[in-house]
């Protein structure tokens, strides 16, 4: 190792290392760099003192400012709640059926309801509430399973259908595979298809399926297939089919009934929110008075 010598250009000493004629200087780190480094150490210590940091013996150390993201959230929510407080109070205090009569309130409920619908309802009922053929009912027509008054819609959103909520709408369509003979099922399927066909209006009462229908189906679906909302029994004398209107689809439904399930939203959304949603759905086109 060569002994250190002073570099004539910079004036700094060399380390004494030399490779292929290149010598290494011991240039000190610049002062500005050292200052910034020490400043970051200082900032870290101040930050540790002010903000939540390490786990302590009992819980974590909250820091002198006692800042937490949950407190921050609570403040943000309070600001938002204050901004909407007047509207939400009016929505809660106005009877459901009268919300739409007030133009301003209606606008607030429908606008908010649309955003809420897209997040909570659209995955099943579709954006715009057109429903999904073979799965989930449309909400834009007047063909309601459980009722189209705003109070009915509110009840359905709050507690859902056939779920674990004690207040949910419950009904079960039995399987007729063991109750009816195959030819009877075949006949009643023909009859159910004829119910919504105007050209068969005069002849359908003479069909063999008519008696099968009266004996087995009419108690829920009505004498003329007009549906029974207390059981969520669909209207069968219109041409709207949730699970398909082909003869095969009807036979399948009679023998292996599919029944829709809707979750309960009372635990997920607050009352004012559900009222906004109910108003939005009620104004989509099929709402009943």
């Amino acid at each position: 190792m060569a002994s250190p010598e002073r570099d004539p250009v910079t004036g700094y000493k060399t380390t004494g290392h030399e490779w292929d004629g290149i010598k290494e200087l011991t240039t000190p780190i610049p002062h500005w760099w050292v200052s910034v480094f020490l400043a970051t150490v200082g900032i870290a210590i101040v930050y540790l003192y002010l903000m939540p940091s390490f786990a302590g013996v009992k819980g974590f150390l909250p820091g002198a400012l006692e800042w937490s993201s949950s407190k921050q959230l609570a403040e943000d929510q309070a600001v938002a709640a204050a901004a909407q407080a007047g509207w939400r109070k009016r929505i809660l205090e106005t009877p459901l059926a009268e919300i739409e009569a007030d133009p301003d309130l209606r606008r607030f409920a429908v606008t908010g309801g649309r955003a809420l619908f897209n997040e909570n309802c659209a995955p099943c009922h579709g954006v715009g509430a057109g429903g999904q053929q073979g799965q989930f009912p449309a909400l834009i027509d007047d063909d309601w399973l459980w009722g189209g008054k705003i109070e009915d819609i509110h009840q359905t959103i709050s507690h859902g259908i056939r779920n674990e909520d004690d207040d949910s709408r419950q009904s079960t369509m039995p399987s007729f595979a063991d109750i009816l003979a195959p030819e009877q099922i075949d006949q009643v399927a023909d009859y159910v298809r004829a119910l919504s066909d105007p050209s068969q209006e005069a002849t359908r009462t003479a069909m063999p399926g008519a008696k099968v229908f009266t004996d087995n189906c009419a108690s829920c679906h009505g004498d003329h297939g007009q549906g029974g909302r207390e059981f969520g029994a669909p209207t069968l004398n219109d041409a709207i089919w949730l699970y398909g209107g082909s003869k095969q689809a009807i036979i399948s439904q009679v023998t292996h009934p599919r029944m829709g399930v809707m979750p309960t939203f009372a635990a997920r959304l607050d009352e004012a929110t559900i009222r906004m949603l109910a108003t939005y759905v009620h104004t989509l086109g099929g709402g009943e008075r």
Partner: peptide, 21 residues
């Protein structure tokens, strides 16, 4: 959990675009 029905999950996992275009 509980946001959608089981039938929705089946339809969605089988063909996501059938329920969410």
């Amino acid at each position: 959990g509980g946001k959608y029905s089981n039938a929705w999950h089946v339809a969605h996992l089988e063909d996501p675009r059938s329920v969410v275009p």
